Each structure stands twice: as C-alpha cells, then as structure tokens.
Amino acid sequence: MVSKAKLCVIGILVLGILSCGAAYAFDLPVRLPGTEATAGQGGLPLVLPKAAESLPREIRQGRALCDVTLRSLPEQDAPEAGEVQMGETLDVYAVNVNGKWNAVAADGGAMAYIPASALSLTAPTIQSADNLDPLLTDGGENGYPGAVYNDERYLKLLTEAKKYIGYPYVWGGSTPETSFDCSGYVCWTLNQSGVYETERTDAQGLYNMSGRIEREDARPGDLVFFQGTYDTPNTVTHVAIYVGNGYMLHAGKPIGYGSMETDYWQAHFYAFGRLAG
C-alpha cells in the first residue's frame, strides 16, 4: 500500500505538470453562494463593481493530494479554517495567491486557502458572467485575494509585520528591542517595510494621517481603527493592519492575528483608513 506521504509527493509532481501556464486571480467573497450570509461585513449590502458585471469567470475543481489544514488567509501561520482529507474534491476560486496558495470553500461556505502543492487542479471552465451570483465577483470588503495578495507593496508590509508575531504587548514600546504597543507596532512596520514613512505617533495620529474609507472598500494593507479600548481623551484608541477575511494583525497580547468579528472588536470598531502611498 502506498503511504499518504508518498501519494502527496507524487501529487505535487503531477500538480507541477497540470498547473503550468497562466495563473488566474479573482476578487473573492468572505462567503460563497448557498450559505446564510447575504450581506457584507457589518450588515452592509454587497455591491457588484461595474467593471466585473460583464466579465466571464474561470472556475476549477481540485482534488486534495493529502490530508491538509486549511487557512483563513494565504499564509502558513494564519488561523486554521478547517481540515481537508486526501481525495476530497473542492471548488477552486483562485490559484497562485501569494504564489503558493489556492482559494477554496471551507465548511459552512467561508473562504479558505490550501497550499497549491496539496491540490491537483482540473483545467479551468468558463462560466458566463450573466449567470454569476454577485457574491462571486464582489470586489469591495468581501473580495480581495488575487490582485491584492499579490501586490508588492502589501507583501512588503506583511513580511515586516509578521516578523514580530508572538512579541509581547508593551505600553509605549516602539522597537523590537522594547517590543511594541499597537501604534508603535504599526509605525515601525510602515517605516521598516518602506511602505510609508511616519514619525512615531499614537493610534489617533495614524488615523489623522489616513484617508477614511468605507468598510466595503477596505482591502488588505489598510489600517483599521477602534475606539474606547481604554480611558483617554482621544477618540481612536487602537490601530491594526487589516489583512482581509475579517482578520487583522495587531499588537494584541501578544502580537498576532485577531478576528474583527468578535463581539468585543465589533463593539469598538471605529473606521478603516488608507495611507497615501
């Protein structure tokens, strides 16, 4: 009997042959059609961008080559989003996200990511745009992975930010030597990644420098601001880096990923902001 490990290695070699050619990337939703979610994050209606209304869409299927953990973001250290068993068939909505992930549907319809090396793909089939559910091509808050996750500016920001996952929260901290508080972490990451140059400031200062954007227009790499997380005269009291799929990367306790969908963060949410770059 051939072991699962050997099957996975064989499958990776097969995938290298099957996946040659053009890479496809699409804007994707947080949830897929057929699930209970019919509105965007926070209850806002989904809006179909006019540019996407007439575009055909290429859809693939994939077969898992081994048992594998799904991730909620296309990153190895992102939160888990479920498990897939060897031989399971999945609908694939984008390939080569970050160069090595495919976007699939997890249990319950939530978007998830599987290593490309663990999935054997069929050739794409074309589905007419006239038959598409708007959820599939929504390009605002609920659609981001392909183009955004392969954006060089965002990848530089994320690469720097991930270096400090696990560092403790330290009030007033602003360097790796001292560790960080929320604004110190964001300021350091912006400067060291080369994405944006800023003096050390607090969450309110970062908000004041940002252009406020609507929730449905937010994309990975934007900043997300919260209010009332501690006693201060400032309106904005916490800042994080938005990474998509309802997650942020921030100086929690410790620094790491956090879900914006918890009751606490939903109650304290203030705004999304974007720094001109």
Rank of each mutant, 00 (worst) to 15 (best):
C20A: 13
V186R: 06
D107G: 13
L55D: 13
E53A: 14
D151L: 06
A106L: 01
G228Y: 05
R212F: 09
G258L: 00
L190D: 05
G143M: 08
G252N: 10
W188N: 04
C8G: 12
D151Y: 03
N245I: 08
F269C: 00
A271M: 02
V47N: 10
D138N: 15
L44G: 10
G205L: 03
S259R: 05
A203V: 02
E75G: 12
D107H: 11
G172L: 05
C66P: 01
E152A: 15
L44D: 12
A105L: 10
T198V: 12
A25D: 08
I255L: 09
L7W: 10
S120A: 15
E58R: 13
P134F: 05
G173H: 06
D91C: 12
R57N: 06
E216L: 13
V97L: 05
N234D: 13
G82A: 06
A251Q: 00
T229M: 01
P124A: 06
L46F: 15
E197Y: 08
T137G: 14
G146V: 03
M209F: 09
P49S: 11
D130H: 13
A118N: 07
E88I: 05
Y242E: 02
S183N: 03
T262N: 06
N208M: 11
E177K: 14
A240K: 03
A25G: 15
L65K: 04
E216Y: 14
D181W: 09
M1E: 13
R274A: 05
D138V: 15
I114W: 11
G173I: 08
K253L: 11
Q85D: 10
C20I: 15
V186F: 04
G244C: 03
Y247E: 05
F180Y: 01
F269V: 00
L132A: 12
A106K: 02
Y24D: 07
A112G: 09
A52F: 13
G184N: 03
A118L: 02
R71K: 15
A267H: 09
G252P: 07
E216P: 08
P74V: 04
G43K: 01
M111D: 06
R57H: 09
P115T: 02
A23P: 10
P254Q: 03
A123F: 09
D91N: 13
T35R: 04
E53Q: 13
K100L: 11
T178L: 05
K163T: 02
G11E: 00
A118V: 07
A116H: 04
E141V: 13
E214T: 11
I165N: 00
S174L: 07
L65Q: 09
L223F: 05
F272M: 03
L46Y: 15
G42I: 06
I213C: 04
A110F: 10
V95Q: 15
V97P: 02
V239F: 09
N98K: 15
I12Y: 14
L157D: 00
G87T: 01
L119N: 03
P220N: 03
D263C: 09
L28Y: 03
Q266N: 10
E75W: 15
